[in-house]
Nucleic acid binder design. Sequence first.
DNA 1: CGCATATGGTTCATATATTGAACCCATGCT
DNA 2: AGCATGGGTTCAATATATGAACCATATGCG
Lengths: 253, 253
Amino acid sequence: MSTVGKALTLLDRLSQLNTEPGLTDVARICDLDKATARRLLVELEKHGFVEQDPETRKYRIGAAPVRLARVREARYPFLRVAIPFVKDLAGTSEETVHLSEFAGGQLSTIHVEDSPRAHRVIVDVGTHLPFHATASGLAYLAFSGRQQIETVLSHSLKSFTDYTVTDPSVFRKMLAETAERGFSISNQGLEIGVVSTAAPICSPSGQPIGAIAIAAPLARASVAVLKGFGASVADTAKRISEKYYGSERPSGT
Amino acid sequence: MSTVGKALTLLDRLSQLNTEPGLTDVARICDLDKATARRLLVELEKHGFVEQDPETRKYRIGAAPVRLARVREARYPFLRVAIPFVKDLAGTSEETVHLSEFAGGQLSTIHVEDSPRAHRVIVDVGTHLPFHATASGLAYLAFSGRQQIETVLSHSLKSFTDYTVTDPSVFRKMLAETAERGFSISNQGLEIGVVSTAAPICSPSGQPIGAIAIAAPLARASVAVLKGFGASVADTAKRISEKYYGSERPSGT
DNA sequence: CGCATATGGTTCATATATTGAACCCATGCT
DNA sequence: AGCATGGGTTCAATATATGAACCATATGCG
């Protein structure tokens, strides 16, 4: 792997921890030599991507990503555009609605609007969504290129519940159904008792950039209800995309 | 320079542009060979730090920094902590107040609260603040280690206005005054007609992490007024730091 | 038209940055 | 004292990055 790749992987790993690691921890977690880990950390620190606590000598994510994120959002205010739609959908469906974005080979939750009900599904911002076990992943993948699909299928599909689809051929069939239907349905693929439906948010070229999903407790979501949600979610996804790309064309000539 | 450094510099340059560059532009801007630029871009793209528009083939900042920034902010909610104080100060001073953070060797504006008055100073979020020509920079540097000061002084001090201090020995004197006084004063160092005062926000170890500043039109800010602002700004900086580090000790032991 | 120029992208011998085992130096524990 | 652990460093060996030259395609333009 390239050095840059290693550095970025390090950054990613660091971001996934919930404790601040020391040098040795970093090396172990990233499967790097201590010297290598250190060089990468120093380099990342120079640029503000990590910072070392001057007292504990532990490392943490630095402030540079915050600046980059601001720039990104200023130019591409995805969240700003999408959040009102997510809220709206959460309001009408009365279920938890969450938004995810594809970045670095994975789909991650970037916003959640909770259901107003007491019995509701909880989704945390930042969660990675496996492609084969979530409605969001399914929706994203169903509208992605063949290559993306093959990449996902090149690894074995991890089982999370008894309902998780792990058979590639069954999974392919679900992708086809999703693509035709316009939205995906996941039946307890990641967690028992939770069903959800999702649709991809696509760029004008048709390339998905993320997904929006409604997650409901199984007890409340009949197939009919879920299909209704599916239609709403697909509609919302389309409207987000239109709003996001529609008015503000990336300043090309 | 290390490859990682090049990649991160590329990312930084990319973030400073206000147009989406193509491969050749990137190579030129970063002073890299086209092939090198491409490899770095590909690597950065793999991890979501840049993305290439599938239609125009131009490159832009990707979504990964947004995720990292969320993680960073979740653990270190600097903005969330600081913004109320900034608002408060803007309210009482009736002048533009801005907050900056040190990252990647530079001080950048991360939040601005505008003065409610019609005649006011405008500061853009994301602006880099030269150490020698702004109150924020002066404040930051005055409380930094000797090494940081020498690093800054190792480059020649660029002049922005007729008032910009470019003489290192004068600058050192100002640093000493600032350190003693507890806040800095900049007299039109970056822009004619603008005076400002700033104080560093420091970690418990005394290491500055950023600065908070009040910027006012010269016409309105007598020396007395400015000194009053300076005291407020220093007080606010101290309170931000206490709030930021005080309650939530970095989970050490 | 057809030539010139610009762009995105690729190749491969060469040069250079990266690697990691072994090392040093604190600190803390027994 | 003796040992263990963690941060940090060194330097010869080697994997990795580099860039001049190369395509392919697109866009002027006389």
